[in-house]
Every structure is written in C-alpha cells, then in structure tokens.
Simulated scan of single mutants.
Amino acid sequence: MQIKNLMSEDIITIDKDQNLSDALKLLRKHNVSRLPVTNNKELVGIVSERDIAAKLGSSKYESMPASRLHISSVMVKDVFTVPQTMQLDEVAKLMLDNGIGSVPVMDEDDQMVGIVSKADFVTLAVGIAFDKIAVKEIMSKDLITVSPTERIVHARRQMIDSHVGRVPVVDDEDLVGMITSKDLMRAFIDFRKKVPEKYQKSQIKELLVEDIMSVNPKVTSKDATISEVAKIMIETGYNGLPVVEDGNVVGIITQTDILRLIQKLES
C-alpha cells in the first residue's frame, strides 16, 4: 500500500513567526500532537508537544512566557518528508529509524499534500491478523517510571534522555498515574501565566508529578490482543497503555511498538 492511501489530507499548519500560545491553541482545538511549520506556505519545520515541553522546561527559557517564544525557536528544522507513492513499510522504517512521530507527505511538485503519523498506522492494527498477536509479544519491558513526589523538571529530563513521550507514575510498585509530554507542555505554559517572572526560577522546582499527572490511567494486560489495544488507542487518542499484572506494571505498549510490528509484517 502506498502512503497516500493512509495519510491524513487535513493538514493543520502553523507559521514560523507565530508563538507557542498559538501552537497550544491549535494542538488543543484539533487534538493533534504536532504541527508542520510553514513560511509563505513552504514547509520549513515541524513542532511537537515533546519539542515544546523540552524547550519550556530548559533553564534558557524557564522564565520566558509562551507568547514571547516564536515557533521558529522551538521547531525541528531538518524535517523528514516522504513522497506520496512510498510504500507503508518504507515510511514506517524511516519513522522508526529516526525516532519521529509523523512525516509530511509530498507530491511530485514537492508540495505538502498530507501528513502521516503513528496514530494513522495504529488504525491498520485492527483485524484478524492482529487478533492473534498478544501484547506480551511486542510490549516494551524496559520501563522508565517516576514517582508522584518527584519534580516535574526531573520527569522532563528522564523523558528527554529516554526519548519517550509518556511514563507511568508508580508509588510503592502501584500504578497511580501517567505523565505525558502533553501534561508537561500544558503545565509549563500554565505555570508561566500564573507565577510572576521573578519567582519562576525558584517555584518551578516545587511543581511535582502528582500535581499534573493523569490519575486512574487506562491499562491493559499482557494477554490482550494488539487489535484490542489498537481500538482503545483509536477511541481515546492515547499513545500508549501501561501493561499491568497483579496490580504491578510489567511493561508498556505504545504506538511505536505497534508501528514496529506493522513494519515487520508489511515488509
């Protein structure tokens, strides 16, 4: 299958000279996690929730309000793109090899005609073939977790260093929540709005994971099927689910794991 048959043609873009507040509004309104960045309608970058969370949590920008940060200072400039005739497995491999969550799709005139994300690939994982594959066969067992009493600046650092967009929050081996790049991004922006600039450097360290985490997270079991998990991801928009056994987190299954499976099956 060519990627043009899977891509989304409804492309939500943002201009490089707009600010992070504008980006947040677009991300929320359209329920997407990344935006292609344009300059005079030409693709010049891409910005994601993870990019924004990483930038806003850095010491260089810790006291700067989102309204003063232009997209051009946050976006990834070296954007991978694919032709609309590229095969699914080739696009999946490109995304996996480069650790990217989506790629703009270009026509023969090098004009952007769509975008394809991991979430689009997950829609392919519903069906008979995926009913026969259990979560335990592809889930990630090397868990990165945080505790509810850790600072969010520490959680941000762990997520950046581990190249993940979500981590389970564990207290005494019990799963008590999830924290995502989206949670961090919103927390940093809200913090800047509420706290006077002169107090931000000291008070940011007082923000804890439990202040912003999602409680009662949706979970799955290691014996659930990939098709079942894919349906949950499609219905909820979640990028990953903790895998729980006897009350303990034994792994996590993410869109990346499903993308890797699809790439293997397609090739």
Rank of each mutant, 00 (worst) to 15 (best):
G165N: 11
Q84N: 12
Y61G: 00
D131H: 12
I138F: 11
V76I: 11
V215Q: 11
A134Y: 13
E9F: 00
K55L: 15
S117Y: 04
E62I: 15
H163D: 15
A230G: 07
D107E: 06
P217K: 11
M1D: 05
I12Q: 11
E49F: 08
T81A: 11
P196C: 06
E108H: 07
N216R: 13
E210D: 10
K205N: 15
L26I: 11
V44W: 01
S221E: 14
N98C: 06
L43D: 02
N39D: 14
V195H: 06
V170S: 06
T149A: 00
L208D: 03
G177N: 04
I160G: 03
V219T: 15
P217T: 10
I3H: 07
V146Q: 01
M112I: 05
A53C: 09
I46V: 14
K29S: 11
V209F: 02
V219I: 15
H30F: 14
K231V: 12
I204K: 09
L207H: 01
N248D: 13
G177I: 12
K136A: 13
I52Q: 04
Q87T: 08
P242L: 10
L208A: 09
M7G: 07
I253T: 10
L265M: 14
R156A: 10
D97Y: 04
I138R: 06
Q87K: 13
V244F: 08
R192N: 14
F191P: 09
